[in-house]
Amino acid sequence: MKKDFYWAILKRVASSILVLLLLITFIFLLIRLAPGNPTQKYLSPQLSPQLAESVTRSFGLDKPIYVQYSSFVLNLFSGDFGISYNYRQPVFTVIKDYFLFTLIFSSISFIIQLLLGYLLAKYSFRKHGKSIDRYLSKLSIILFSVPTFVIGLILVYIFSVKLDVLPTSGIKSIYHDDLNSIEKLTDFFIHLVLPMITLSLAGIAVFYKYLRDNFDSVKSSSFILNLRANGFTKNEIFKKHLLPNSIQPLISIAGIEFGILLGGALLTEVIFSLPGMGRLTVTAILNRDFPLVIACTFIAGLMMVLSNLAADLIKIKMDKRYLKELIN
């Protein structure tokens, strides 16, 4: 059993690494195939061609493409992402702060999504068939179809423009440095309320809808009927049988959702001008800052793979049968 487990994990990790490598190769090729040269951005046409050549050489763009690729892959695996063309700093230093912000922001949002989704689903399941149940399920469908940026702007309009209680953008006030540590924290908190709601609403709707539907389908299966006929209380059935069975398909979805969140919540970051990975990636793309683009996509892919792996582990922990499925 133990051996099986390690074998499955090994296989899973190997395929993940392959996927990551494919992704990076794809992006590398895409960038090198595209028209335009990153050096053009930093040189005016009046400068001498020798200078242009030396800049190209300093970026390492004069070598043949396979040499670039092999050195690029080697550097990647030794943890060296290179130097950002735009910031003139190692990519790692550039990314560090942005990634930290995204990690914290996304994790909190993810927890809120899961928790609220679960609580609402439970509540609406208790109120089975009543009008509140129907309204919640309608609302979840609506929230799911509404684009993030429209929700964000509506929230900004209501809370920042009309009521004037919350700030519109950024993560700290101008006078942030003069505050003491508790005030600093509340300052962060006030700035992140709206982005958090914007980012979480759609996720809450997804988790709610999924869980609610699963509750229904599991409830109508015959083993629940059997348990009820044997006289178990509703609470006991819900906790021990209904919940574990209906939560399982949700875990893979939660894994994917978390991975996407860690890659950067692009639209939310753009609306509220937050310093997250999503905006960093897009600015890097638009600036043709190739080392940064590759690093960002690599990290997004890595997060995706890791969170999927975590989801798989949790699933194995919950249900041993899944291990067999994974091996085959």
Partner: peptide, 23 residues
């Protein structure tokens, strides 16, 4: 099938932006 998994697992919006920005 592997390719499908690859594309399904990666947030498409960045790829879309990358391709549009480049081409």
């Amino acid at each position: 099938s592997r390719l499908t998994d690859l594309f399904l697992s990666f947030p498409a919006i960045f790829l879309v932006i990358l391709i549009i920005a480049l081409f």
